[in-house]
Amino acid sequence: MRVVFTKGPGTSYEIAVHRETGATLAPRNGPGGHPYLPHDLLHFLVEVEAGIPRGVFGQLAAGDNGLFWPADPAERTKANRRRKTKGDNAHSRPKADLIRSEELVGMTLPVWEYRRGHARALPPPMTADTVPPLVERIVGRFDDYADRWHAMEVGGTLTVTW
């Protein structure tokens, strides 16, 4: 699966998912909010590095539509009907992996911001001596993408592969 992030003005971005399994998905706007690391890219990097199989992107790779809608209107109607009848919504996804993804994003972004001089301190109870090895690895992955994203012009793209 390929995930393409297209930079918009300010901290906005669009995300498109190209996958082998499931309906073709329509691109959607991301929540934005960070000038260096789009929120959905954080989840992607966390899930890959931590080996979270059924987080946001593992679900998409497995054929679930997640927060996306099928591009084909007929497929969109079918997906909407399934969600209503089967409860196939964000609450029925494997919660443990989604919670783990959110927790790791919440832990790693502040460490990255502190190390890059965008924050004055690490969030308690973390100290420079108590950053877990997994968080260190994820922060390193953030470094691989942050400067490229920040320097990118509006309309530029960044592609990652699951």
Rank of each mutant, 00 (worst) to 15 (best):
I99W: 08
P94E: 10
F68R: 08
A119R: 11
P123S: 13
G58L: 03
D144V: 07
H118L: 14
A79N: 14
N89M: 03
Y36M: 09
H43T: 06
T85Q: 10
P125N: 12
R83Q: 15
S92M: 14
K84Q: 06
S92L: 14
H43W: 09
I52Q: 02
D72P: 02
A61T: 04
A50D: 06
V105T: 11
L41H: 00
L134S: 10
K95V: 15
N80L: 15
E75V: 00
F68P: 05
D72W: 04
G66M: 12
V139Y: 00
N80G: 15
G63D: 10
F57K: 01
E47W: 02
V105F: 07
P132V: 10
P31W: 01
A62G: 10
V135P: 06
L134D: 03
P125H: 13
H34K: 00
H39K: 08
A128L: 11
H34I: 04
W149N: 07
W69H: 07
H43V: 07
D97V: 02
R81G: 05
P31C: 09
G51H: 09
R54D: 04
A74I: 06
W112K: 02
G32Q: 10
M126S: 06
R116K: 14
D72Q: 08
A146R: 01
F142E: 00
T85K: 07
N89L: 05
A74T: 13
W112T: 01
E47Y: 05
R83N: 09
L122R: 09
E136F: 10
G106S: 12
P38S: 06
R81Y: 08
L37F: 06
S101R: 13
L134N: 07
T77M: 14
K78F: 14
G30T: 09
D129P: 04
L60Q: 09
R116F: 07
F57S: 00
F57N: 02
S92A: 15
V48S: 05
E102A: 09
G63C: 05
P94I: 02
T77I: 08
R141A: 04
H43P: 10
L60K: 04
S101K: 10
P94T: 11
W112P: 00
E49K: 05
W112M: 02
P124F: 06
T127I: 02
Y114F: 15
R82N: 12
N65H: 12
P38E: 05
V56N: 05
D129H: 11
F57R: 01
R115K: 15
D143P: 05
Y36H: 11
P38H: 06
P124T: 07
T77G: 11
L104P: 04
K86M: 12
M126A: 08
I99L: 12
K78S: 14
V111N: 01
H91V: 15
R93C: 10
R115S: 04
R116T: 13
N80Q: 15
F44W: 06
R83H: 14
N65R: 07
E47P: 05
Y114N: 02
P132D: 09
M126L: 14
P132Q: 11
P124I: 07
G117T: 13
N89W: 03
L98Y: 07
P38G: 08
A62K: 01
V46G: 01
H39P: 03
G63S: 08
